[in-house]
Every structure is written in C-alpha cells, then in structure tokens.
Write a protein that binds this DNA or RNA. Structure first.
Length: 591
DNA sequence: AAAAAAT
C-alpha cells in the first residue's frame, strides 16, 4: 500500500504522464525482467506513460496488413505460432487484478512456519522416480511460468511441488497426498502449465466456421467437488496462465450457462469444472475431451467416493476422453482412504505415489482442542469462544462447521441476533448467495461464516484463524479437511471441536489424529475411546483406511458394513431427545 | 443420516 501512495504522489508531479486507454496499453514494450508487481517506485506509471519517442508514437498510422484489425479487448493471452510461444504484452491493470499489490491484506501470504515444510518426510514410490527440484528455476520450469510465479510472489516450492514438477514433467501419472494448505493446487498447475508452455497446443480439429458456436477441446481438465473450489482453482489458473497461449475456462452449475458458453467461445485450453455442468456441456456438444492430455482430480478421494464416482466414470470412461494410456492422470488430496486408493487404480497407469507426511494427517501448524459440550449448551459455549477470539480490530475470520443445512441457517441467525457479523454457506442457498457469503467472509465484512460440508475441502481463505466444529463430522477425513481451512501455507491456526456422546463414532480417529499432530488429548476422549471400542468402533474413517505411505498396513480389510451403527442407535435415551433442548423456542426460526 | 453435484 505504501508503494501505491508513492506511486500516486509521484504521478501527480509528472507532467509527461498521459492517460492511455486500456486497449492501447498493451502496445507498450515491457522490460524482459519483471519488477515485483506493484513495486513500481523506481519508475512510477511505467506502463501507462507514453513518452513521445515510444514505439507507439512512432508507429505507422495503418497497422501492417498481416495483422487483422483488433476486434475486441486484449484478454492478456498470447499465442503459439509455428512452434514458438508468443506471450501477450504485459498489462498493468490485469496484473493488479490477478496478483494484487504486495502486502495485500486480502491475499494469503506464507507464514512463519513455511520453512518447516522442508522437515516433513516425503515418500515417493513407483518406477523411475525423478529427483525433486529444489527451487523454481529454468530447467526444468518454463521461463514464462517462472515469470508468473514471480508475479504471484511465490518464492520456494512446497514439498509436494518439488516432487510433482519433475514427476509430471517426465510424463508419469501421479497420486499425491499432501497436507491441507501445502500447495497442492500449484502442485498440478505448475507442471501442467510449464509443459504446455514448452510444447504448445495439441492439434485441434479445425473449427467449423458455419457453426455459430464452436466446440472446444481443452488440453487439461481439472475436476473438483464443489463449485467454489472449482472457481478458486480457475482463479489460480488465470494467474499462472497469464500472457500465455493457454486460456483457462471454468464451468459449474448454479450460474447462467450462457455466460459460461460465451467464455468457452473465447478459448478453452485448461478447463476447471464441476462434474454436473461439465456433463451437461459435453451432452450439448459444446465440450470435447478428445484432446485432454492432463486429467486432474482434485480432492480425488471425494471425487471417487460413492456420491461422485458414477459421474466421474462417465466423464473419464464414457465420453471421448483419451484412454489411460493416452493421457496423464493426476490425483491430489490430503486424505486417501485405502479402498479409494484401490478404486483409483482404474484411472491410473504406472503411477508414482507421493505422500508428504502421513496420508490423512493434519498440519502441526494447527492447534487442535476438543471441548465437551452437550448439544443444548453449544450455543453459549460458542459465544464465549467467539468473544475471546474475535477482538474488534483483529483481522481474524472464524469458520463454524455444522452437519446440516438447516442448522447452518439456524446458527447463523442466532449469531446475527447476538449482533455478530455472520453469514452462512450451504447447498440449499442459491449460487449468488453462496458466492456473496464466501466473498463477504473473505473480505472480512462478515468475519464469521457458518458452513456445511460444502466449505470443508480445498477453499483457501486467508486469515481464518479459527475453525469451530460446532458439530463434529462422523468421518475423520472430513475433520481433517475442515480444520485444514486454517493453518495454511505455514501460518498457524486453531481448531476447536465440540464433543459429546453423539460423537463416539469419530473418537478413535480423532485421538489418532491428535496423537500424530502432537496435540493434547483430554481425559474424556480417552474414556470415550474405551467406551467406543466396546462397540467395535473402527476408528480412522472407513476401516483404518489410511495408507501409511505406500506401504500397506496389511490386515484390516475394512469392507464391512460401512455404518454398522449410528450415534442414535446406541445413544442413551436422554441424549437422543437432546434436540428439543437444543432449540429453545426463541432460537428457532418458525416455519 | 447428510452433503455435494445439472436444469
């Protein structure tokens, strides 16, 4: 922000500076080495100033006939011509949009523990595992990507990136497991874009000029389980594809498909998509997967579990997607239950298995506590916690997870009635409401957000210093992802979970996670652990599912009935009626 | 039992 101030004041004293309309700014020559974005103090207004001796002023009045007249605003994307990558000129406004200013308070910045990532043990198994990279450097990373990485102010690759870049670069399939907030998105975007920049587009069938709307043939397809996550990946893709020939596009439900259609018409080389809308566009002949070279499943375990698997199979095996042999498949997640790892084999060939730390463990940057709270007292305990945590002028955000959409609304209303700035996100809200909730939360206008599972995975929201599990999930992997909304990129964070008799189904996994992360384990959890084991509680997720690296733990098949019991079926009667205590009349939204 | 994902 300081540089912006000096920029403005310097600009005011510069009589030579003229306004240049946005569509002409791109004509300016750019220096070959980019200064840090926004760090323009040595040369204020470098991109908008038009000195009289510039190439612009001396340009012939008529453009060379080989160039078609410009018909639309430059979009910041370059070309691939005769085997050569021709990046678009730089564009100051676009750079500010994409990368923000240095020290932008709304951006995630790496935290004090970033360097500790180097201490996490990494396991890479498979044939011909290449040496990891150590830094972002030209071989092997394409120089254009290096420039964009610099713009984004990424200085050091995270462990998953150090390995994924050479692995994907040498053409291998990959199953990568790395902790929440440890840079998985870069882990697939960097190598994919780097290779794309080096190799150019795959040959695309000629467009049919008679058709009003053309079919698009993305080179890379990235699938993710929620619309917001898909959108977030797309935003990252835009950063790292800046000025290149690779045009990112995004496709998901709940938003007008016409707009997405027009966006696709402007070009689509790297597509981020939610499964439903993608299928829709494939059916309508708008998207072909015939040219896909890279297929990414982000949150891969989620994408391959019961709810999504049929859709994914349809996209991967039932459309015109190249076969396993003819594409590269990349699976990323922080958790990977063993039976899903097995299932994933259908989509991979000769994959390299990469794990950073233990599969499914949590970051030690997150301080985890568990508090005993009966359902009826959760609301007041929450208020106490928030009072202690949300100092007025702090930049903190708190994310509160509940199990049901209805409870998300109820709790949000409760917080609002207590004069707290809260919002809610869940699948029953329309997409505009969801995006509004997420944006106001990100901006800090609403520093509290109540959420269902829709916000549990992947979302990278700066300044979430506290995650509250108002209701604990029944699956330990969900717990891992939820608390992973804090303590990202080397920042520290807190997670507080409300625990009571209804949560015995997660106690084993929870204790295991807390132990691994060297967290304190309350006495009541130890006791509940014994209680739960009487009922044969299976602990970690579905059947002790976590891989220990590549090495199988053998034994436990974990294919019993997935839900042998539910909390209510063995609850004491007094607890099963707790709902009526939970919601005194004045808290309930009468329907 | 719940949530998510197409209209």
């Amino acid at each position: 922000m300081e540089s912006k101030m000096s920029n403005n004041s310097a600009g005011a004293t510069q009589p030579a500076r003229k306004y240049v309309p946005p569509h002409l700014r791109a004509q300016e020559r750019s220096p070959s080495v980019p200064p840090a974005v926004g760090a323009s103090s040595p040369m204020p207004g470098a991109f908008t100033r038009t000195p009289s001796n510039s190439s612009f002023a001396g340009r012939p009045s008529k453009p060379p006939s080989s160039l078609p007249p410009r018909t639309r605003r430059p979009d910041g994307y370059g070309k691939w011509l005769d085997g050569i990558h021709i990046p678009a000129p730089r564009n100051e406004r676009l750079e500010l949009d994409l990368f923000g200013e240095p020290g932008d308070p709304f951006k995630q910045s790496t935290g004090i523990n970033f360097d500790k990532y180097a201490d996490i043990p990494v396991e890479a198994k498979g044939h011909n595992v290449p040496e990891p990279i150590i830094e972002f450097t030209n071989p092997p990373i394409d120089p254009h990507l290096l420039e964009n990485i610099k713009f984004a102010r990424y200085t050091t690759p995270t462990p998953v990136q150090k390995y994924s870049v050479p692995i994907i670069g040498q053409g291998c399939d990959l199953m990568a497991c790395a902790q929440t907030g440890s840079g998985k998105t870069g882990g697939f975007l960097f190598p994919i874009l780097s290779e794309c920049f080096k190799n150019g587009p795959v040959q695309t069938p000629p467009a049919n000029p008679s058709k009003y709307s053309t079919k698009v043939y993305p080179t890379a397809l990235i699938l993710a389980p929620t619309r917001e996550l898909v959108n977030q990946i797309h935003e990252e893709a835009k950063k790292f594809a800046y000025r290149s020939w690779v045009k990112p596009a995004v496709v998901y439900g709940g938003a007008p498909s016409g707009e997405q259609m027009r966006q696709l018409d402007r070009g689509c080389d790297l597509l981020s998509a939610a499964p439903g809308r993608l299928c829709d566009f494939i059916d309508r002949g708008k998207i072909s997967l015939a040219n896909v070279k890279y297929l990414v499943l982000d949150e891969a375990d989620r994408m391959l579990d019961m709810g999504f698997e049929p859709q994914i199979r349809r996209i991967v095996q039932g459309c015109d997607m190249p076969s396993v042999e003819d594409r590269q498949t990349l699976l990323f997640s922080a958790t990977f239950p063993r039976e899903i790892q097995l299932l994933a084999g259908d989509f991979l060939k000769n994959e390299i298995f990469l794990s950073v730390g233990r599969v499914g463990s949590t970051s030690e940057n997150i301080t985890q506590t568990v508090e005993w709270a009966e359902d009826f007292e959760k609301k007041s305990v929450l208020l106490d916690i928030l009072e202690g945590h949300m100092e007025p002028e702090s930049n903190n955000r708190t994310l509160i997870f509940v199990e049901t959409k209805r409870m998300a609304d109820i709790l949000c209303d409760f917080l609002l009635q207590n004069n707290l700035r809260a919002t809610a996100i869940h699948g029953d809200r329309d997409q505009r409401e969801r995006e509004y909730a997420l944006n106001t939360f990100k901006m800090g206008y609403n520093p509290l957000m109540v959420a269902t599972a829709v916000a549990a995975r992947g979302l990278d929201i700066p300044h979430v210093s506290l995650v509250v599990n108002y209701d604990l999930p029944s699956d330990i992997d969900d717990y891992v992802h939820r608390i992973g909304r804090t303590g990202r990129a080397g920042n520290t964070g807190h997670a507080i979970s409300f625990f009571n008799q209804n949560n015995l189904n997660i106690v084993r996994g929870l204790v295991e996670i807390l132990r691994e992360a060297k967290q304190e384990i309350p006495i009541f959890l130890e006791q509940s652990l014994q209680q739960a084991s009487v009922f044969g509680g299976r602990g970690r997720g579905r059947g002790g599912s976590r891989g220990r690296g590549m090495s199988s733990r053998g034994g436990g098949s974990g294919f019993g009935s997935p839900f042998r019991r539910t909390a209510s079926s063995w609850d004491s009667p007094s607890n099963s009626t707790s709902f009526s205590h939970d919601s005194p009349a004045y808290w309930i939204q009468k329907s």
